[in-house]
Amino acid sequence: MPVAHVRSGDVLQVHTEDCFAGLVRGPADLPSRVCRMPYLNPVSGPFFVEDAEPGDTLAIHLAAITPARDWGVSSTFPHFGALTFTSHTATLQPPLDERVWVYDIDRQSGTVRFRATETDHYVDLPLDPMIGTIGVAPGGFEARSTIVPDVHGGNLDTPELRPGTTLYLGVNVHGAMLALGDGHARQGEGEACGVGVEIATVTTLTIEVIKGVSTVWPRLETDREIMSIGCARPLEDAYRIAQRDLIAWTAELTGLDDLDAYQLVSQAGRAPIGNVCDPNYTVLAAIDKALLPASAPVGGYGALHARLRQCAAELR
C-alpha cells in the first residue's frame, strides 16, 4: 500500500534509513547479529504518483541528499561482496571475516573519515552523498527484493545517483509506486566489498510524469552527460545492455544511424561500474552531451532535466 499520493511536479522531502535500519552503530554491532536477515536495505515509500500509467516515464530529479547523522558505517560480510564466495560463485576458500568500520561525517568540511581497524591509519575522503536504491514497482505483479537492480531501478548502487542527477524510469503499474533508500555518504565505483558508507538521509527530489513515452532501461542525465544503465549477470551482459541503450538514445537524439552512434560511443564514451555484488550487476554507459550535434535536444525528454534542475535551484 502507498504511504502517500503525489502528483507530477511535486517536490518531496523523504527521510530514509540506512541499509542496516540504523542497527549497526559500532564495531561490536555485526550485521549478522543485530539485523534480521533478510530484512535489510529498507526503503521509504512507496509513493503513488497520480496519472502515472504503464507506458509512461517517471522523471526523478535528485535536488539534495543530506546525511541525517554525523556518522556512517560499512562492513564486510562472510558471503557477500565481489571478492568472496557466494551462493552464485562457489569456491572452497573460507568466508571473509565480518567486520564493521565507522566513518565520521563532517558536513561543514565535506569529508568522510576512513579509519583502519588494525592500525592507526586514517584519511579524509570527499563527502559525495548518493542514493543506492531507487525504483518503481516492477511489472507483471512481480515482487522483487530491494537489493535487486533491474529494469524497474532498485538497488542500482551507482555514485552517479547524486544531487543534480535526473533519473528516468519506465512506469510498469498504475501509480508507478516510487520508493527510495540505501543512502551512501560515498561509494567507490563497483562497491567491491558490497557495502558503501551507509547513512540515513534527508533526500529532496522533484518528480514529473512524461506521458506516452516509454523507457525500457533506467537512464540518467546530468548537466554534462547522458547515461544508460544495464543490470544483469554476467557483468558483460550488463555492459552490453547499457551500451546498446546508450547507442539507441544517442541515435534518437542526433539522427545518427546506429553504426555512426556505435562508433561515437565506442571512441568517446565511459563505462563506470555501479556494483559487482548484488543479485544483478550494474554497469553504466555515458557520453558527454557536448559531443552531440548542437541541434539535438539536450538529453531528450523535452529538455526536462534542465527545467527540473532550475526548479531544484529555486528550492535553495
Rank of each mutant, 00 (worst) to 15 (best):
Y281I: 07
T16W: 12
Q13K: 10
D97V: 06
G274D: 05
H88S: 13
S74K: 03
M130S: 15
V171N: 06
V100Q: 08
R7M: 03
G190A: 12
I131P: 00
D245Y: 09
N155P: 11
F77A: 13
V265N: 10
L315N: 08
E314K: 06
E17Q: 04
P46K: 00
L259S: 12
R115H: 14
G181D: 02
G139E: 07
C35E: 01
M177L: 15
R240K: 07
R316F: 03
I226R: 00
T76I: 11
A52Q: 01
R219W: 02
A28W: 13
A242H: 07
A68Y: 02
D223N: 11
H61L: 03
H152R: 04
Q263W: 02
D258F: 12
D182G: 09
V6A: 04
R99V: 10
D258G: 02
A312Q: 01
G170L: 02
T91F: 03
P31K: 04
P27V: 08
R270Q: 12
Y301I: 01
F80Y: 13
G153N: 07
G26K: 14
Q93M: 07
S145V: 12
L284E: 15
W249A: 08
M130Y: 04
P27E: 14
R309P: 05
A82R: 06
T119Y: 10
M227S: 15
E53R: 14
R316T: 07
V3S: 12
R309I: 05
G300P: 03
A286E: 04
W249P: 00
R186A: 13
A90E: 13
H121P: 00
G212C: 11
G164V: 05
P279F: 09
E191I: 13
G269E: 05
Q267I: 10
V283W: 02
P297V: 13
D97Q: 08
S214H: 06
M37R: 10
I105P: 03
S228A: 15
E198G: 05
W249L: 08
L180W: 05
P138I: 08
G170D: 03
E191L: 14
R240N: 08
V197Q: 07
I241N: 06
P46D: 12
G269K: 03
Y103S: 14
P218G: 08
I273A: 07
T203R: 03
G183V: 14
G55D: 09
N280R: 04
D157N: 09
V202E: 10
E118N: 09
V148T: 13
V216E: 13
E17T: 01
I147K: 04
I65E: 02
A59V: 01
R162Y: 09
L220G: 04
L315D: 09
N155R: 09
I241K: 10
T146Y: 02
C231G: 11
G274S: 05
Q243C: 11
P126C: 06
V209Q: 04
